[in-house]
Amino acid sequence: MTWLLLAEAAVPEGGLFDLDATLPLMAVQVVLLTFLLNSLFFRPVGKVVEDREGYISTSLADAKQKLEQVQRLEAELTEQLRGARQAAQAAILEAEQEVDNLYREAIATTEADANRTREQARREIEAQREQAQSQLMGKVDEFSTKIIQRLLAVS
């Protein structure tokens, strides 16, 4: 091994398990590094990460609350919509009934009118026919008396 040849009076022999002042100094160095990294790395990065975690959780809670609100409003609106639909249905039904009623009424009055007019016409016709018949009868009577007079005069 080379280090055996290089061993001199002042310089220690070295070797794998050579414990010396490197140990405490390294310990001090690691402790210093701990403090340095604490202020440069762990604290600032931790703050950012935890701030973000807080931000995310509050945002999430906020969003949940808003979602709840939206769902409540939606349910309310659905209820309103159903009411409105029912009202519309009722209005349509009512209007249809009314139209039906009006239609029937109109037909009934028209029919009654027509009947009355027909009746009147029939009665007028009857009266005229009767008049005509009586006139005709008068004329027949007149003619027959005339014929009888003529015949009597001739004979």
Binding site: D20, T22, M26, Q29
Partner: peptide, 23 residues
Amino acid sequence: EVGNHLYWQIGNLNLHGQVFLSS
């Protein structure tokens, strides 16, 4: 090389210089 150290001497304390340099 095994067990070969770059020795730094402070007073009568010995330090492994290569360890500190690389660290």
